[in-house]
Design a protein around this nucleic acid. Sequence first.
DNA 1: TCAGTCCCGTGGATCGTTTCACCGAAGGGT
DNA 2: ACCCTTCGGTGAAACGATCCACGGGACTGA
Lengths: 343, 343
Amino acid sequence: MAGKGDASEAPRRPAVLGDVAALAGVSAMTVSRVLNAPHRVRAETRERVLAAVRELDYWPNLAARQLVTGRSGVLGVVSIDTTLYGPASTLYCIEQTARLSGYSVSIASLSMLSRKSIEEAIRRLRAQAVDGVVILAPHESAADGLRHLPLDLPVVAVDAGEDIPVPVVTVDQRAGAARATRHLLDLGHATVHHLGGPVNWLDANYRIDGWREVLAAAGRPAPEPLRGDWSPRSGYELGKRLAADPSVTAIFVGNDQMALGLKRALREVGRRVPDDVSVVGFDDIPEAAYFWPPLTTVRQEFAEVGRHAFHLLLDRMAGHTEPARRLVEPQLIVRESTAPAPR
Amino acid sequence: MAGKGDASEAPRRPAVLGDVAALAGVSAMTVSRVLNAPHRVRAETRERVLAAVRELDYWPNLAARQLVTGRSGVLGVVSIDTTLYGPASTLYCIEQTARLSGYSVSIASLSMLSRKSIEEAIRRLRAQAVDGVVILAPHESAADGLRHLPLDLPVVAVDAGEDIPVPVVTVDQRAGAARATRHLLDLGHATVHHLGGPVNWLDANYRIDGWREVLAAAGRPAPEPLRGDWSPRSGYELGKRLAADPSVTAIFVGNDQMALGLKRALREVGRRVPDDVSVVGFDDIPEAAYFWPPLTTVRQEFAEVGRHAFHLLLDRMAGHTEPARRLVEPQLIVRESTAPAPR
DNA sequence: TCAGTCCCGTGGATCGTTTCACCGAAGGGT
DNA sequence: ACCCTTCGGTGAAACGATCCACGGGACTGA
């Protein structure tokens, strides 16, 4: 009545290293070698061991391994709201890249960035014995947390400020904003208004810097920027103010979602895009090309950011400690929401 | 020159349980009790131990704990493309909920759902000794993977099909689609066309079922549904076909992004929404309220899905094994993209 | 045949925590 | 003064993989 398979499969206890060794007729040491330094074992023996591994569906117990090696093969990612397009994309790409190198990733998302919440998240990840951490910290109040990190934990930050003791990879927000602004000036607009992100978001501030610099270089007045919260709603609310001012003909918006809200506000008062006012967004979310009109925007290569972050982290874990700042170039995507200034 | 703090802080070896016991003047056993069953220790002793814990900044080594208990306090989430709004929101909420109960979450995102890739992801998570797994598997080809899960691992699925040996929590897609379709019929449209998601996505199919049922019940003809890939681009491409047919006056679209693309196609041939044709989407992404016109759509409460998934998983881990199917009610959000049928 | 490699086994220590069985001491209620 | 409960200590054995030092065997090439 044994059916197929051996009759003694009742226990179902997951196989351990010793079982593999026994089945392959080798010692535990050899199995361990096959797993961790395959080239040091003769091909024939190696095959025999691997066959046993497959046969028993053996997978090494990471906890045991970690206990002795001190390494876990797990990376941590701490991030604010992974529902946002940017963090979500970056996270996704970090995970994909990490997996190819045999790492898993554990997440700790924050509903709020502060020194306390970051420290708390790091502690949780560290308790899990992650080998390294990527912090997605596009927030000013995160900087404080980043300056007081435990020194023995490899960390890299994404979109963090300057003056940070860890490597940072970030999209060159300043350059992106500059490109957007210059594009609008080149179209003949007298000046460019700005609807930016929240006050303590670093990207928001860098974008304002880039925008201001270009205006200054061109000798144009820089209107006071408005600050939204990234949501379409805030773009709409603040957009109503801009829409009411007939002198504004060009608006650079801090992200695509707010641009969407802004465009609705413009439409509601009968101002056409791009005929009456030109709009440039930021991010190039998948929807942007299908807004009406299709949105001119600045594309951020989040995938590249993720890849860089991972590789910088690997460097860190390998002991290289030069703090680097890796800039990823954004790209202006010209679509149909911008046009020459009306006269 | 010791400054503040003790002079012997050179070694910096993280404290272990024994250190705490020594400092508090109790045995290791007592420390362990304080950590795992605090009520079994007198308040005074407990305080002394906790003080030592704080003093040494002690955190238990999870690997060691896990090695003996077999529990890791880590949950796994396997998901397709966490960049999509639905999975991202669900994941976010699972993580938030899990954290409150002391669990961490580890992710395994898939670029493709198949039995093989699911098994592989599960294996990776299981090697990390996760205590349980949530699978976000809105895909038909995932069903095969779900039917061959290891029996000893607590699993719950989100958005999975029927006939699955694990608990499932899902939004009631059929009901959502039915509501959308009925809404359009109530407005006097002769029939409702459908632009759906990819063939092997379960939600897409359930939505088609719901749409068909309502049409059948009303005795209306059901046009052949078109199938996109969720992207605005596909909504646009397929939308051109619908836009070219003057007899279509009402379209129910499988998600908001495709609805966006569709609306662009309609606009390009001069058909107005909602005057000439009414459009209903699905998901209620944050942008939907700011599309032009604001999109009538079916809202999915992903947060609730995440919470339910987590609690079902807790049940499973506690040993309750009745397979449940928990339905979350979607909600029709009527905005301005729908109107009475033109005559 | 000899020296030099390369493979692989032995036996046990190690990582840090939980858990077991048992027992002693202190304190409260009757 | 008795019993019972609660609190806490002892000492050691797990958990499963890695790592160490060493040495013996098999193979190669000259």
